[in-house]
Design a protein around this nucleic acid. Sequence first.
DNA 1: CAGGATGTTGGGTC
DNA 2: CGACCCAACATCCT
Length: 259
Amino acid sequence: MPELPDVEGRRRLFADRVAGRRIERVSAPDADVLRNTSPQGLGRALAGRRFDEPRRHGKWLMTPTVDGPEVVWHFGMTGEFVWADRGDDRHRHDRAAVVCDGGELRLRMMRKLGGVWLVRAGEDAAAVTGELGPDALGISREAFGEALAGRRGGVKAALMDQRVVAGPGNLVVDETLWHARLHPRRRVGDLSEGELRELHRSLGDVLRDAVAAGRVPRRDDWLTGVRDDGSPSCPRCGGPLERGTVGQRSTVWCPACQG
DNA sequence: CAGGATGTTGGGTC
DNA sequence: CGACCCAACATCCT
């Protein structure tokens, strides 16, 4: 699930339940999800410290400790946080846990595509995340225009590129293009000023509603609610939706609405 | 059994 | 360098 709204939901869980807690130790039955450290290394770096307020950039979550190192999380396609009582039975996909006073934070992740990184004080989380464009949530019309300026490829590929704007994933991008009535294969350079404005507005609408839901919601009046149907119909015009591959990703769009 | 799934990286080509 | 394509990663589901 994890696209920007899903990661924002995890950030909120962390802020509500984990920030301020004293860290006792780390356990990682699947040590390979710790990408640049070991269970022992992470435990030594964190034990005795307290988590500070988390922040998010795109699909990345940064959870600093007070005056100490920070932990950087990426959820891949299947990762989530679970706040559990200490010692509760582990789910088979609980890959790592940070044991705190009063509970433990689990990283539950079926496919191990995400991971956990340790960023020591003085190091830069950007070395882990790589280059990221401006966060897509609340991005201004001006910053959005600058991010897309000079792009020669298709609009779906551009919005999926985390170096252009950070946060949108496959579902959010399809949803945004459907809201904006733009075909996913349109070239960025061919979009009119009005179409760019509509694209920016749609991205904001989709992200705002999804963030409020704490995840990308399945809604009957959105593409998300029908895109997995056998023969999906457009929630707007009722016509048949089309499926294909755009920008190397499975894509759904309405051939009647999206010109 | 084959193929696909909300993500990213690293390789290669033009 | 930019755009695009593919394979790989790990696991479950249809």
